[in-house]
Structure formats: structure tokens, C-alpha cells
Amino acid sequence: MPAATVAVITGASSGVGRATALAFARTGARLVLAARSRPALDLVAESCRALGAPVRVAVADVTEPATVEAVAEAAISAYGRLDVWVHTAAVMAYGRFEDVPAEVFERVVTTDLIGAATVARAALARFRPQEHGVLIFGGSLLGTVVTPYTSSYVTSKWGLRALVRALRLETRDAPGIHVCLVAPGSVDTPIYRTAANFAGRFGQPPPPVDSPERVAAAIVRCARRPRATVTLGLASRIIRFGFVATPALYDVLVGPLMRIAGLSRERVAPHTGNVFAPAPQPPGPARPAPARPGWWPAAALAGGLLAWQSVRRSRRTGASTLTR
């Protein structure tokens, strides 16, 4: 990453995007921060300027391509080039698929997947002429596994992973251009409470939960030394292994674990959250204190996996003995 890196961050107003803006500001980067909420952006920009970073602010909605183009032009106009684009903007909806209104489902997919494609189009159009640039997408464990009550978000994140892979293949002719995916598990951000909700209970990040700052640090490292995919957390690897290696067992366990660890006990009436427009975070903690140690969902899945394998081995041994 060159000195005085020019970095655009979409979704910079909160959560991982905000933490990433601050992390880049500490490196001396020159920033363009974009999101839908100007007041929230101004607060983040003020914090970045206090760290010594030059900052431009651009109100943008990734479902409106013209506003994304304006973000790219703001970077070129202000700084003459664009080195890194980090895209973390996302919305979410909770509820059974049949309970989530079609327009909410479609808007989540449009924002999280089609919006990412819009950002990629704008970024690559600037990277190609200058023959360098790093495009980093905020992915998720839910781009590799599936949980109930999050169908629109899961659909988007699986699609995002495919999009990133396709872009990586199509930029092989440009060794100075990198397309990366940073995929954490649960992160303590407002998205769980600002999400649209038709599940009857507020969502919460299932433990173990990473801080936005840890994810932001991984993003900055990826900008400096681009890697195709960065996966954060041992628990994510355990859960992904269970999803792939023993899908039947995973399907038995994931529903109860999601209801216990992924949905809080706090009731909420159906609402569309910030899916269609910025919305203040509802009162209350983003992450209620867990009733059990943070590793227990992954440990439960790992324990179930080992028990399942033990039963299968016993059955094979028994069958082998009977045939002798």
C-alpha cells in the first residue's frame, strides 16, 4: 500500500466501516467516506480528522449507481487517484422466508449483492487505467454456511462470494489489481438491531463475537498485502467444517443454536429497520451478555460432529463384525 493511500470506504457510518475508516486514518491515508446518513458520516469524518487524516464525505446509496459513481469521482477529484476501495455497506432482515415481505427480501439482496456489483463496477473502472488498486469486500461466515431466519442475507453473501471469485478470475490479466474478501463470523455492530425484523425477537451476534476493530485491522493488512480471502476466527472454521463434512448433523443443530444464540429474548414488533432508509439504532445493547461462555455454539457443533462420527464408526464396525 503506497504512502498516503487514497481509500474509499462505503458503509463508513457505523460498525466495521466506521472502524475501518479510523484504522486507515491512523495510517495517514487520505479518505473518502460514503454512506446513506450524512450526520453519521460527519461524526466519523470528525474522528478521522482528529487523527490527522484528510477526509471527504459523500452521501451515497449503493442501490443508486449514480451516487456510487459520484463517490469514485470525489476521490479522483480530491486526490488524483484511488488506491483502495473497502465496501462494507449491508442491511439485514430476520424472519422465516415466508414471513419476510417480498419487497424487504429483494431490497436486502439488491443492497448487499447488486450494490456490491455496483461498487465493483465503479472501482474497477478507475483501477484499470491506473493499473493498480485493491478492492476489498466485507464478507461473512454466512457466505459459506446457512442459518435459518436470515435467508435474504445468506443469499446475498453467497452471491457476493461468487461475484468476488469471478472478478478475481477476470482481473488475472492485471497483476496490480486485487479483489479480496474479508469474512468474519459474528461482529459486535448495530446491524443486528437495525435489521428488518419479522422473527418476533431482536437478532444478536452469536458468540464468539469479534470487535469491529479486529475486522478493520484485518482489512488494513489485506490492503497492504492483498490476500484473496481472509477468514477470521477458529469458530468460523469449525462451523464451516461441520456444514460441509456433516450436513445432516449441521441441519439438526443449527436451528436450535440459532434460536438460542442468534435471537435475543427481547421481543420486537415487525418492522423494516434500515432496509429502505437510514434508521437510528433501537435502544438496548447490540449484544446482550451471553448466558454461557462465548465458545459454546461452536463447541456444541464440534461436540455433535465428534459424536456423530463416533456413532458412524461404531455402526461400520458393527456391520463389519456381522459380515465375518
Rank of each mutant, 00 (worst) to 15 (best):
P2N: 14
A3Q: 12
R18P: 07
A23M: 08
A25Q: 08
A25R: 02
R26A: 12
T27I: 01
R30T: 10
R30M: 06
R36A: 00
S37D: 11
R38V: 13
P39V: 13
P39N: 13
D42P: 12
A45H: 06
A45W: 03
S47Y: 09
A50H: 11
A60I: 09
A60G: 10
T67G: 05
E69D: 15
A72V: 04
E73N: 14
A75C: 12
S77C: 13
Y79T: 11
D83L: 02
W85L: 05
A93Y: 06
E98C: 15
R107E: 04
V108R: 03
V108Q: 03
D112K: 02
G115C: 02
G115W: 04
A122D: 03
A125H: 08
Q130G: 07
H132K: 12
G138D: 09
G139F: 05
L141P: 00
L142I: 04
G143N: 01
T144D: 13
V145C: 04
V154F: 03
L160R: 06
R161Y: 13
A162R: 15
L163H: 07
R168N: 08
V179G: 03
L181A: 04
V182M: 03
A183W: 00
V187G: 01
T194M: 12
N197A: 05
N197C: 08
P205K: 01
P207D: 03
D210F: 06
A217F: 07
A218H: 05
V220H: 05
A223V: 04
R225C: 10
R227D: 09
A228T: 12
V230N: 00
V230T: 02
A235N: 09
I238D: 02
I238P: 04
I239H: 05
P247Q: 01
A248F: 15
A248I: 12
V252R: 15
V254W: 01
G255F: 13
E266A: 10
T272F: 14
T272P: 07
G273F: 05
N274Y: 02
A277Q: 07
P280N: 11
P282F: 06
P285F: 11
R287K: 15
P288K: 05
A289I: 14
P290D: 10
P290Q: 09
A298D: 06
A300I: 14
G303V: 02
S310F: 15
R312W: 14
R313C: 14
